[in-house]
Design a protein around this nucleic acid. Structure first.
Length: 810
DNA sequence: CTAGGGTTAG
């Protein structure tokens, strides 16, 4: 008796709920075993120990076979997250009714035990006598538990046989089921067949279309729903918001936000989370922030969303701040949080912490849980420039999907490893297991552009025409870029006019293409067309435009763009913009203006800025400013051999030979880290690659013979080798030998001996073309009567009849 | 007493 009294005293319950009856019950229970449990408010138990004591009391009172009470206990255990206790309680009930079965099934479903739920359902269905027939409470959870379409179809048959298909709850579950397995035809048939539909039915259909990426159909159903006089509720709103982001429909998004405010739906976490995500996708980080700030209740998804919002809008520092705050308020990060973290540390290029994120993922064995996290790690190492690590993670992934491959390929391409990117792509194709998607094309095409692999690029273009993916703005832009960088400006232009061009993306590409081909005026014209069509220019547009102006020496126009960018668009110039302007002003001879621009920059000039100034000083022979620029330059980046070459050539141009010698010894002392120079030339369908000084090519002898013949002809026409491009401290004849074995010259010579007379030659060089080779190529184009097109890392040079299209502004 | 439809990803 005493133990029972103790039991009663220690029984905890939720004081906020209706506890008066519980009090009464407990005090009477203390005096008698003949207890009436009817008044016990089961739902007010929030504590597992109290529940266990209640269970014990039931047993002691001999009520454990009372179906109603035991079933309530099944539900109570489930709601406290103890499904195994639900199950054992369930198993002890001898005469189960349908309420008992339904409770057990939904308990399994709520805890994710789909297998167990389905076993339970089939036990119920196979019970003989048919006294326990499923009712319409049985099917919604049962349908949710189906992990394959076959199970779902079987249940659908039962639903029809038993005449429950008219129930709105069952109907919504069926629509949801078929949508999950992407069978939208059947889902829609169920939807249309329903004679009564509530908001839930409409929501099921709309979200079915949303989650299968069919935004248009989702919006169509939504508008039909509103025509029928039904109002959107919180569920409708949270399904439709991601669609607005996906279809780039900011107006609908804003209207829905207004609707949310008007109907007080923002109190719902799902709705607010969806709003944060939508604003984040539109880049409206301030709006996302405001929604987050106004939330009274925030869950894990809210925090993940705000962290991802900043991470995806390139503000890793703020994102990290929110991560710390999230930990501070006691919310435990999950897999998706870590996915964002990986990207954050990649963006911060923090090697140490990135490694520890990797360690964390391995310790939790999360690589087996979801490919996304593995892909995030590959991406993280790629952003750190550690492609060997990225590769290792990639190879150890338990499973790889299309995104894994795309991430690897993009990583190689963006770290300048184009041929590794192509190898990875080929490996993917050879596996025959993965179907490439949009992301694949936007990762592989830039690698082709980089190497000038026109044939391979065209092969992809052909494939894309078959499935119309070439109309996708991002894919098409990559194709435009590929054609432009492979020298097919005409193809780039005609493709540009074929595709949708409401966004700045394709315009930026075509403006840049025209620029690198030296067609500055046309770049400007396209910019004006762009504005006339109402397309808004962005910071990338101005990089393309300014560099086009600088390639063509359009000083006033460039200045106009630079001013307009700041005044009309409120874009603060970045280092790239300043680089273009310094280049533009400097090369046109306005060295003082260029210098003033550099000294008044609000950001610290980097190597590219000083390099541009030095290049301009070289052209105009301003040794004083050039020396100053090179001193600053070597403070920021003393490893790049290209700058020493520029400096040496500058001294040589004004006859300051002691300067040339000084640069040479400086270069020697610093033990220059040289990027190996290579050039390629296309002969037939074969791409031949030559490295500087290559002696191992099968046609080596013929190539050097051809060069010897050419050099003597060139000399008779007035060519004088410019040794200031050679930094090695060697004898004159050896310097000439070095110039002659530059990769671009080998490639040109190979092109000449391997193609019919007077046919054009296309060369690609990974670095800037050497000044002496540039001069030599002019002579070669005249001697051989060939058009020679050289694409270097900066622009195109069209050599024809002894003249270069760049006007010697190389 | 038991049920449906919703938000985050590389």
């Amino acid at each position: 008796m005493l133990s029972l009294v103790t039991f009663v005293r220690t029984c905890t319950f939720n004081p906020a709920s209706t506890c008066f009856s519980l009090h009464r019950f407990l005090s009477s229970a203390a005096n008698s075993f003949a207890t009436n449990f009817d008044d016990v408010p089961f739902h007010s138990f929030t504590n597992i120990d109290a529940t266990k004591r209640l269970h014990a009391l039931l047993v002691v009172s001999g009520k454990s076979q009372n179906v109603l009470l035991s079933t309530k206990l099944v539900n109570l255990y489930a709601s406290l997250g103890h499904v195994s206790l639900s199950r054992s309680t369930f198993n002890h009930i001898k005469r189960k009714n349908i309420y008992t079965w339904n409770s057990m099934i939904s308990a399994f479903v709520r805890s994710g035990g789909y297998r167990e739920a389905l076993i339970c359902v089939s036990d119920l269905l196979s019970m003989s006598g048919g006294r326990q027939r499923p009712d319409f409470y049985t099917f919604p959870p049962a349908l949710k538990a189906c992990e394959c379409l076959l199970d779902g179809r079987k249940l659908h048959c039962c639903v029809v046989k038993m005449g429950f298909e008219e129930d709105v709850f069952v109907g919504a579950s069926l629509i949801h089921l078929y949508s999950r397995f992407a069978d939208l035809g059947v889902a829609y048939k169920v939807f249309v067949g329903m004679s009564v539909r509530d908001v839930g039915s409409w929501n099921a259909m709309i979200s079915g279309f949303c989650q299968n990426g069919n935004a248009a159909e989702a919006l169509r159903v939504l508008s039909k729903m509103r025509v029928e006089g039904l109002k959107m509720d919180k569920v409708t709103v949270s399904s439709i918001l991601p669609v607005c982001a996906q279809s780039n429909d900011i107006v609908s998004g804003l209207l829905i936000h207004l609707y949310v405010i008007k109907h007080g739906l923002e109190a719902d976490v799902f709705v607010s989370n969806a709003l944060i995500n939508m604003y984040s996708k539109f880049g409206r980080i301030r709006d996302a922030q405001r929604v987050f700030d106004d939330m009274k209740m925030r869950d894990l998804v809210s925090w993940n969303s705000v962290i991802a919002a900043y991470e995806q809008n390139s503000d890793p520092v703020t994102a990290l701040g929110y991560f710390k705050e999230m930990q501070f308020v006691g919310i435990r990060p999950d897999l998706l949080t870590v996915v964002s973290l990986a990207s954050i540390f990649g963006q911060l290029s923090d090697q140490m912490i990135s490694r520890s994120v990797h360690g964390f993922v391995i310790r939790h064995e999360w690589l087996n849980r979801d490919v996304v996290i593995g892909n995030a790690l590959v991406n993280m190492y790629a952003k750190l420039g550690a492609m060997d690590f990225a590769r290792k993670v990639f190879e150890q992934l338990p499973s790889r999907d299309i995104v894994s491959w795309n991430t690897l390929i993009t990583g190689y391409a963006q770290n300048g490893l184009a041929s590794e990117a192509i190898d990875a792509y080929n490996m993917m194709e050879e596996s025959h297991k993965i179907i490439p998607n949009q992301g694949t094309w936007v990762s592989i095409l830039p690698a082709y552009s980089h190497l000038g692999a026109l044939q391979l690029g065209m092969k992809i273009h052909g494939r894309l025409i078959k499935n119309s993916l070439y109309l996708d703005v991002f894919v098409a832009t990559c194709l435009i870029d590929m054609y432009g960088k492979c020298g097919r400006l005409d193809s780039a232009m005609s493709l540009f006019y074929e595709i949708p061009r409401e966004t700045s993306v394709p315009w930026n590409a075509i403006i840049s293409c025209l620029g690198i081909h030296g067609h500055g005026e046309e770049s400007l014209q396209l910019f004006k067309d762009m504005l006339a069509e109402g397309v808004k220019a962005d910071h990338i547009t101005f990089v393309s435009l300014l560099s086009a102006c600088s390639h063509s020496g359009l000083v006033d126009e460039g200045q106009w763009c630079f001013d307009m960018m700041q005044k009309e668009y409120g874009i603060k110039p970045s280092l790239k913009h300043y680089g273009c302007m310094v280049d533009l002003l400097g090369r046109a001879g306005y060295l003082e203006k260029a210098y003033n621009l550099v000294s008044n920059m609000p950001v610290r000039p980097d190597a590219s800025i000083w390099g541009a100034l030095l290049g301009a000083c070289r052209i105009h022979g301003n040794v004083e400013l050039g020396t100053f620029a090179s001193n600053r330059l070597l403070e920021v980046d003393s490893d790049n051999v290209g700058y020493y070459v520029l400096l040496s050539n500058m001294y040589a141009n004004v006859g300051k030979w002691e300067g040339v010698l000084k640069v040479r010894s400086l270069a020697r002392d610093r033990g220059l880290r040289k990027t190996p120079g290579w050039s390629s030339v296309v002969v037939g369908s074969i791409i031949e690659v030559f490295y500087t000084g290559n002696q191992t090519h099968p046609k080596c002898t013929e190539i050097y013979n051809e060069l010897r013949v050419l050099t003597s002809k060139m000399k008779s026409l007035g060519y004088v080798p410019d040794y200031s491009f050679v930094l090695q401290d060697v004898e004159e004849d050896e310097k000439e030998q070095i110039l002659t074995s530059h990769s671009e010259r080998l490639a040109i010579a190979f092109g000449i001996i391997s193609t019919p007379p007077r046919s054009p030659i296309r060369i690609f060089k990974n670095l800037r073309v050497c000044g002496d080779c540039h001069n030599a190529t002019k002579y070669i184009s005249r001697i051989t009567e060939r058009d020679i097109v050289v694409r270097d890392s900066n622009r195109f040079h069209h050599f024809k009849d002894g003249i270069c299209s760049c006007g010697d502004y190389w």
